[in-house]
Write a protein that binds this DNA or RNA. Structure first.
Lengths: 339, 339
DNA sequence: TTGAAAGCGCTAACAC
DNA sequence: GTGTTAGCGCTTTCAA
C-alpha cells in the first residue's frame, strides 16, 4: 500500500543516468549537459521525486530551515502571545524575509522550563540552521542555553549583560523621549508612566529615558506604575496612578496594549482622552489605530527589525560573520488622537 | 574550531561497548545489562552526546515531531492571526498535549499560495510525522494538498465536502441556538446577526442555525451582515445593521472579536449594551471577559478540541487508526453582562 | 561532462 | 545480552 517514495536512484534509473547527475540537476550545479538536464527534469516530474531532507542534512549539515523561537513563561503564555499584535509583526517580518530567501521558517514556542530544554534539544541536532529569538521574560536563560549549544542565534532586543550574541534593538530611550516631548508640547505638566517589568532591559530603558527627558523639561517628579504589557494590566496601573494622582494630565504607557487599558479606565472614570488626560503608547501595533481614541504612539519598525534579524542570522550561518553584531533602529512618533 | 559533534561511535568507544549497545540504551530498549547501562549513560554524559535526528529519521522514518499549520491568505495574515486569541487557545491546547506525549511541536504558517506549497514540500519529507491544521480561509486547498501528499492530517473544523480527513468540530448550529434562545429569553424581538464569510462551513452553520432557532421562536426575519472575524469588521457590520434597522434590540456575532466591534459601535451611537441592544458573541476567547461590557458568549472548548486533534493524529501516525474520524464537541452558553 | 564509490550517523536484523 | 553488519537517501571527491 505505502509504495516507497521515489529516491534519487529511481529518478536516475528512469532517466538513464547516474545518481550523481540527478543530484547535480536537483541542486542546480553547472556542468550538466542541457539535454541531460531536460531528461532528468522530466524524470523527476514523472516520478514525483522530492529530495529527502534528512538524508541531505546528513551530508551537508544544512537544513535551509530557520526557527523563530518565542520564549517566556507564566500562565497561559501561548494564549497571551497570540493576543499581542506585537508578535504578529515579528512573525510577519521574519516570514517575509525568510521566504524571499528560500529558507523554511518554523515557529517554536518555549512556554515553560522543560519546553526550553526541548527546544534547545530540538535545535541542537539537525532541525534548523539557526534561530531568531524573541523573549518576553526577564532573565530568560534561553539565549545563554542556545549559545552554549553553539546554535547560531539572533535576539530581538539586547541580551543580558555578559552575553555576546547578535541582536537588533530599538533606541528605547530615544523613543521614550519622543513620547515625553509630545506630552510636554501639548502642555501636560502632571505626567505619569505605566512601565513594563523592570527586569526587562527594554522596559527599563523606556522608563529611565522617559524620566530623563521630562527632567530635562523641568518635570522632576514622575509617578510610575508597573504593568505586564497586557490591556488589563494597563487598566489596573491606570487605576493606581489615578487614585494617587487625580490631577494627572498625561500618561506614557510602555506599549499600546497597556495604553489601551489606560484609555479604557480613564473613560470609565469620566476622563476624556486627550482633553483631560493625554495618552501616548509604544509600538504602533495594530491596536493603536483601532483604539478609542486612536493612539498617538512611538512606532517601532518591528517588521524591518525582524527582517534584519533574519539577515544577520543568514550571515552567521553562511559563516560570513563570526563576531556578534548589534543593529539599532530609530523610533518614530506617530500622532493620532490620544495625545 | 568546530570540533565535530560526538556520535554514537564516540560514545561507544568511550564506554568500551558497541554502537548497537549505546543505541539500545539511548532508545530505552530492554535487554541491556544494568551495569553496562550505567557505563553508557556516563559516557553519554561525558561526551555530551545528542542523537542526530536526521540520521535516525533516515532509518526509522519517524521524527517525533508534529506540525501545527495555520493557514489562510490575505493582507497581513500572520499579523491577523496573532491578534486573534482564538489561535492562542488552539496552540495552547495542542502544545500541552504534544509536550505531555513527548512530541516536538512546531508551528508553520501558510500565509500565501507559495507558502502553502512550501509547507507541503517541507512536510512531505522528513520534518514531521503529521500535522494539525486550522484554516481561516474558505475553500482552502491545503487539506487536499496534504492528503494528496499522504501526510497524516487532522483538521480543526469539518473539511470541504468530498474530502475525507479526520477532524474535530463544534456543534455549530447548537451553539447558534444557545445564542438565539438567550436573546429571546431576554425579550429581544428585533434580532440581527453578524456572520462570518459564508464560504466557511462553520460560519454558514452558525448563521443558518441562528435563523432556524429564531424561526422556531416565531421570529422569521433576521437581518444579517457579513464580517471577517475582526473587531473592525464587526463594527462595520454593526453600522450597516443599525442604519437599516434602527430598532434592533439584539445581535448575535459569530465570534467575540466581531461582538466586541459591535459593542464599541453601539456605544458610540449611544446605545447601551445590554439595556438597549443585547449582544452575544461566540468562542469565549480571552477578549470576551475583557470586553466592555463583558461578553455573554457561546463557549467553544478550543483547548480540548486541539488536544483531541493531537490525540487523533497520534493514532493515525501509529497506524492505530486508518479511517478518518470526526469528533464533535458541544458548545456552552457563558452568561456575562452583554446579554 | 559524467559515473563509481565512499561515507554522513543511526537502527535493526541477525549472529554469536 | 552484546556485537557485526547492512543499509536508509543523499552529496561529493575522485577518476574516467
Amino acid at each position: 500500500m505505502t509504495r516507497r517514495d521515489p529516491t534519487l536512484e529511481d529518478v536516475a534509473r528512469e532517466a538513464g543516468v547516474s545518481r550523481a547527475t540527478v543530484s547535480r540537476v536537483v541542486n542546480g550545479v553547472r556542468n550538466v549537459d542541457p539535454g541531460i538536464q531536460e531528461t532528468v527534469r522530466r524524470a523527476i516530474e514523472r516520478t514525483g521525486y522530492r529530495p529527502n531532507r534528512a538524508a541531505r542534512f546528513l551530508v551537508t549539515h544544512r537544513t535551509e530551515t530557520v526557527a523563530l523561537v518565542i520564549s517566556g513563561t507564566g500562565d497561559a503564555f501561548a494564549a497571551r502571545v497570540f493576543a499581542d499584535p506585537f508578535f504578529g509583526r515579528v512573525v510577519s517580518g521574519a516570514l517575509e524575509y525568510l521566504r524571499a530567501h528560500a529558507k523554511h521558517p518554523v515557529i517554536l514556542v518555549a512556554e515553560s522550563v522543560e519546553a526550553r530544554e526541548q527546544v534547545v534539544d530540538y535545535l541542537s541536532k539537525g532541525t534548523a540552521d539557526g534561530c531568531l529569538v524573541v523573549t518576553m521574560q526577564a532573565g530568560d536563560p534561553l539565549p545563554t542555553m542556545l549559545t552554549a549549544a553553539k546554535i547560531p542565534t539572533v535576539l530581538f532586543g539586547r541580551p543580558e549583560p555578559g552575553l555576546a550574541v547578535s541582536h537588533v534593538d530599538l533606541a528605547q530611550a530615544e523613543g521614550a523621549r519622543l513620547a515625553a516631548e509630545r506630552l510636554v508640547a501639548r502642555g501636560c505638566r502632571r505626567v505619569a508612566t505605566i512601565h513594563g517589568p523592570r527586569a526587562l532591559p527594554a522596559a527599563r530603558d523606556r522608563l529611565t529615558g522617559f524620566r530623563a527627558a521630562l527632567a530635562a523639561a523641568g518635570i522632576a517628579d514622575v509617578p510610575a506604575a508597573e504593568g505586564t504589557f497586557t490591556v488589563e494590566s494597563g487598566a489596573a496601573a491606570m487605576r493606581q496612578l489615578l487614585a494617587a494622582h487625580p490631577g494627572l494630565d498625561g500618561v506614557f504607557a510602555a506599549n499600546d496594549l497597556m495604553a489601551q487599558g489606560a484609555c479604557q479606565y480613564l473613560r470609565e472614570r469620566g476622563r476624556r482622552v486627550p482633553e483631560d488626560v493625554a495618552v501616548v503608547g509604544f509600538d504602533d501595533s495594530s491596536v493603536a489605530a483601532a483604539c478609542h481614541p486612536p493612539l498617538t504612539t512611538v512606532r517601532q519598525p518591528v517588521e524591518r527589525m525582524a527582517a534584519e534579524m533574519a539577515r544577520l542570522l543568514s550571515e552567521h550561518i553562511q559563516g560570513a560573520r563570526t563576531e556578534p553584531a548589534a543593529v539599532l533602529f530609530e523610533p518614530e512618533l506617530v500622532v493620532r488622537e490620544s495625545a
